[in-house]
Design a protein around this nucleic acid. Structure first.
Length: 515
RNA sequence: GCCCCGUUCGUCUAGCUGGCCUAGGACGCAAGAUUUUCAUUCUUGAAAUCAGGGGUUCGAAUCCCCUACGGGGUACCA
């Protein structure tokens, strides 16, 4: 019988969610929805020493922002709960003991200090220590110790861990959905701890038990898990759950944009792009890490960018909505190698989506940005500015840097532009123009009338059109940038334009005399 | 060190069942057009001898082997 597709995203609440984790979740989501299955959120908080307050809330909020919805799990509920591993603590012990009984696992009484000492000894001989089939008999565990001794230690309440007992020289095969067939020999693998002395399972045990109990059909996770996957396969075998063992897909990692290694928290701060979906303040150090949301990225753009980082549809289409991605997604088209994050492409994606935002919405966003700068203008005015400059922006915050002169008259004039655009005698010519502009009656079509006048004035007096227009631009904008002069004149209106021209005449006139 | 995975333009990638590849697209870059400015937009261009070397084959980016390089793992972390 065909099983209903069920996948899970299982982060640890040890800090903010890394953008690579977001991609892993996205691929899980796309796969689940594409196949009409369930997508669940499980919190793997078995390491109490690394638990970070607020991380779980952060994770949930991140997906809310991105618009990725879980069908089951922490914060949603479901028939297979609880979905927080710390709340499932008691049930893992039974499974660990079951493995000991079956001979697939054993008690180990070595203290961390003892193991450290052994490692040091090996290191001194330039050898590597591994708790495995070759060394386990020389360590203190229920395999090497007599039955009476083990019972005595257990009764005394000695601290112990339960380790998996890898069989000797056995090839373990696994078929990865992305990488194909992978083979590893059990003799090379170490006897991983399954159950810790604090009564908590490790990832390996909890993961397999929960995936089985939650009827997970596909495990889609980061490549860092590939080396321990043979252990996971063996665990399914040991429990006798091979029939329902999920299929595995190990995703390539996200790499640093420059240099080597996987993308880390530091790279973001250093290279100026976020590594986290949302801004995060470390509860202990108070250190702030930037987030995509706060940096002005649209969730749709982040999703689209992430989806294409390591996957493609096989067509030349690059812009996809979440729903479209669901339609075309397939695990087979995920690439095998790591991908470097590309900031420029990320900006381009955001630009694409920003252009789809309505004038109305963009105006509202800009209004609140202006408010934070203590600037209040009518919505009509802001909307007319937005219409003129929106296409040159990648982010909402670019609206301001591309239109500040609409709200504040220039105090300074770009030096380069000054030399090039305000030639000898321009001050006098501008005075004449200013006076003439003053004669034109104000009104909605003032800009048009002003331009008509300028055209005529320029031809009648044999002036250079480029020079005149650019000088006016310099006076009004303070630079050589900006939209069409006619549009600027229309938006700013008669009084403001003339006042700026006069101000420029005065200021630049002084500058010229000083020279 | 050992184990596993990977390697096509600067970056993301197409190519996977060998010939349609003088290797395609996108970002970025350059030039031109439009905009009497800047940006947008459009057009064009530069950019990978397919990591290197051996095979197999009439024919290989595509299959096999070796080497190099990159990444991951090697915790009572996930």
């Amino acid at each position: 019988m065909e099983r209903r597709v069920r996948v899970r995203f299982a982060p640890s609440p040890t800090g903010p969610l890394h953008i690579g984790g977001v991609r892993t979740a996205l691929y899980n989501y796309l796969f689940a929805k594409k196949n009409g299955g369930d997508f669940l959120l499980r919190i793997e908080d078995t390491d109490r020493t690394r638990f970070v307050e607020g991380a779980e809330r952060y994770i949930i909020e991140s997906f809310e922002w991105l618009g990725i919805k879980f069908d089951e799990g922490v914060g949603i509920g479901g028939d297979y709960g609880p979905y927080r591993q710390s709340e499932r603590k008691d049930m893992y012990r039974k499974y660990a003991l079951e493995l000991v009984e079956k001979g697939w696992a054993y008690y180990a009484f070595d203290t961390p200090e003892e193991l450290d000492a052994v490692r040091k000894r090996y290191e001194a001989e330039k050898k590597n220590f591994q708790y495995d089939c070759k060394t386990r008999m020389s360590l203190r565990n229920s395999l090497s110790l007599s039955r009476q001794e083990v019972e005595r230690l257990l009764e005394e309440g000695r601290a112990y861990v339960i380790r998996f007992r890898f069989p000797e020289n056995e090839d373990i095969h696994l078929d990865d959905l992305i990488r194909g067939h992978v083979k590893m020999n059990s003799s090379l693998l170490d006897d991983k701890v399954l159950y810790k002395s604090d009564g908590m399972p490790t990832y390996h045990l909890a993961n397999i038990v929960d995936d089985h109990l939650m009827k997970i059909t596909h495990v889609i996770r980061g490549e860092e898990w590939l080396p321990s996957c043979p252990l996971h396969v063996m665990l399914y075998k040991a429990f006798g759950w091979e029939d329902t063992m999920p299929a595995f897909a190990h995703l390539p990692l996200l790499l640093k944009p420059e240099g080597n290694g996987k993308l880390s928290k530091r790279d973001g701060d250093r290279l100026g792009f976020p590594v986290f979906p949302l801004q995060w303040t470390d509860p202990k150090t108070k250190e702030v890490s930037s987030g995509y949301r706060e940096s002005g990225y649209l969730p749709e753009a982040v999703i689209n960018m992430l989806a294409l980082l390591g996957w493609n549809s096989g067509t030349e289409q690059e812009l996809f909505s979440l729903d479209e991605l669901v339609q075309v997604f397939s695990i087979e088209r995920i690439s095998k190698h790591g991908a470097k994050f590309d900031l420029e492409k990320a900006k381009w994606f955001n630009h694409q989506y920003l252009m789809k935002v309505s004038d109305e919405e963009l105006t509202d966003a800009f209004m609140s940005d202006l408010k934070s700068r203590n600037i209040e203008r009518s919505k009509d005015f802001v909307a007319s500015v937005v219409r003129l400059i929106r296409e040159r922006c990648n982010f909402v915050k670019d609206l301001w840097s591309n239109s500040d002169y609409f709200f504040v008259a220039p105090e300074e004039y770009a030096e380069k532009a000054l030399k090039k655009r305000w030639k000898d005698g321009m001050t006098e010519k501008m005075m004449v123009i200013s006076n003439n502009l003053q004669q034109i009656s104000d009104g909605k079509d003032w800009g048009q009338k002003a331009e008509d006048f300028l055209m005529k004035h320029i031809t009648d007096n044999g002036l250079n059109m480029g020079q005149v227009m650019n000088s006016i631009r310099l006076a009004v904008v303070g630079d050589t940038k900006g939209p069409n002069m006619l549009d600027i004149m229309n938006v700013l209106g008669k009084d403001e334009i003339i006042s700026r021209i006069n101000k420029a005449i005065e200021r630049i006139g002084i500058l010229c005399r000083e020279e």
